[in-house]
């Protein structure tokens, strides 16, 4: 199995074919909670990427040391460490961002995407592959967050990265800035990706 794997394929699968949000539908909590603006979405994506990459490297390095019956608890300890580091750093260097993201930074620890990658990939592969896999998944996750955050920011506030794009008379869609807007938009985006997938299948037949 390992002979046929290529780095580029392992990297790209996380971005598109096995995208953690659009295909695997993992990590919905941060996906819905903090994506009301593009900046928040990207900040969340970067924080998650840091945790995912850090813990994947560590788990892959220690994969022979970690005893199997306690592996989940060990992964959680490792993940929680990186999450706390991210939490403190964001609070120290950007208090405004920390106020926006609030408790959801700490909640990265229960993001099933991260634990899922440790269990399914990093604990069975070499460090090189683990890095490639984690970066692919992290980019895929951040991309999905960005898609949702950008659409919600454009419709909910009429801005993109904080700069207005519709002029001053824009009527904001209040619902898009609120959690229900997250659910609706995510539903639409999943619908769109499923439709793309079906079209591809239809074309292949």
């Amino acid at each position: 199995m390992s002979a046929t794997k290529s780095y580029s394929e392992e990297f790209l699968k996380g971005i598109w074919k096995e995208n953690p949000v659009f295909i695997q539908v993992l990590g919905m909590c941060p996906m819905l909670a903090v994506t009301n603006t593009a900046v928040n979405a990207i900040a969340m994506g970067v924080a998650t990427a840091f945790v995912l990459l850090g813990s994947s490297i560590l788990v892959s390095l220690l994969r022979k040391v970690i005893a199997k019956p306690v592996r989940i608890s060990t992964y959680i300890v490792i993940i929680a460490t990186f999450v706390t580091v991210a939490d403190y750093s964001i609070e120290a260097f950007s208090p405004a961002l920390h106020r926006e993201l609030g408790a959801f930074i700490a909640l990265i620890v229960v993001n099933c995407l991260i634990l899922g990658r440790q269990e399914a990939y990093s604990s069975k592969n070499t460090v090189g592959f683990a890095i490639v896999d984690a970066s692919g998944m992290a980019i895929g996750f951040a991309f999905a967050l960005f898609c949702l955050g950008a659409t919600r920011e454009i419709l909910g506030f009429g801005t993109f990265f904080g700069s207005p794009i519709f002029g001053e008379h824009f009527e904001p869609w209040v619902i898009m800035a609120l959690p229900p807007g997250g659910f609706l938009m995510l539903g639409f985006i999943l619908l769109f990706f499923n439709w793309l997938e079906q079209r591809k299948k239809g074309a292949a037949v």
Partner: peptide, 10 residues
């Protein structure tokens, strides 16, 4: 209901 949630003022 969608309009109510999206445009509560209007």
């Amino acid at each position: 209901a969608f309009l109510q949630a999206a445009f509560p003022t209007a």
